[in-house]
Amino acid sequence: MLNTETPATQHASLDQYPTAELVNVLVDDQFKAVEAVRAAAPAIGAAVAAALPRMQAGGRLVYVGAGTSGRLGVLDSVELYPTFSWPHERAVALLAGGSGAMFVAVEGAEDDVAQGAADIAGARVEANDVVLLVAASGATPYVLGALRAARAAGALTVGFANNPGAPVAQEADIGIVLDTGAEAISGSTRLKAGTSQKIALNTFSSALMVRLNKVYGNLMVDLKATNAKLVRRAVRLTVFATGAEEADARAVLEQCGFHVKVAIVALSRNIPVEQARALLETAHGSVRQALGA
């Protein structure tokens, strides 16, 4: 029996726990998700290093999963644009059962090997793409079908699973095993297995974006200011990075479409926005390099 499906013997009377104890047990069990990701950190680092040149060459991140795992992939993919200005078309999410399965479970969709392969073909996966395949069991047929098709297309495949020896991790170019063990509620991998997947995907994509010069120091300088909150954040980040007065920072941001990177270089070097933008382009988007730091 898979670790994720094995009943946790220490919680055989979970339904009889007082509410306070029940809540504490469910919370405490989540700490094992962090431990599992920490143990997998070297593999996550290897995946970032392998993905970087493909992204620099114009490749895409393609997330594949079913159920909770698939929905977590969708979540990571859609957050890359507002956080790092990563183009929508370069973060593709393939979910067993289609986009509707994000909200309503599509029974049996995860068992379709052929559909996984067909969805990879439909997404026109190529050699520069990085395909992230997520499955708690590590043996979801839809995900395995996608994995094999992605490998045949020459893409880099990264498999995330919550069971040692899982096919998704073994067959991928890089396997990331998040060994979270038995769930407090037997088989409910939306609990700590899902939490570990969220942490691992978040860590992978965030580290990759740092390597792609989307961050200056620890500041999120390539965000898309698509609402009032993010406009205020862009102003705060620019003020923090440059020491400029808020009014001056806002004025420069308005000139460059609230692109924080450009505003930081323009204010720091006291140059026009267009010159700052050109410097950043020459520096491959690195604020530090554009500033000569």
Rank of each mutant, 00 (worst) to 15 (best):
A8Y: 02
A8V: 05
A8I: 03
H11I: 08
V23C: 10
V25N: 01
D29L: 01
Q30H: 10
K32D: 14
A33R: 06
A33C: 10
A36N: 04
A41W: 11
A47E: 03
L52A: 05
P53E: 09
R54L: 13
G58S: 02
G70M: 07
S77E: 05
E79F: 01
T83C: 09
E89V: 12
E89D: 14
A101D: 06
A105R: 13
A127E: 11
N128E: 15
D129T: 07
A146M: 02
A146H: 03
L147H: 03
A155F: 02
V158A: 08
P164H: 10
P167A: 05
E171T: 09
E171R: 11
L178R: 11
E183C: 06
S186C: 13
G187A: 09
G194P: 00
Q197E: 12
Q197L: 07
T203W: 03
S205F: 01
S206L: 07
L208C: 05
V215D: 03
N218Y: 13
L219N: 00
A228M: 10
L230M: 15
L237P: 01
T238C: 07
A249W: 01
R250N: 10
A251L: 11
V252H: 02
V252T: 14
L253M: 09
G257I: 08
V260K: 03
V262G: 01
R277V: 09
T282C: 00
A290I: 10
A293T: 14
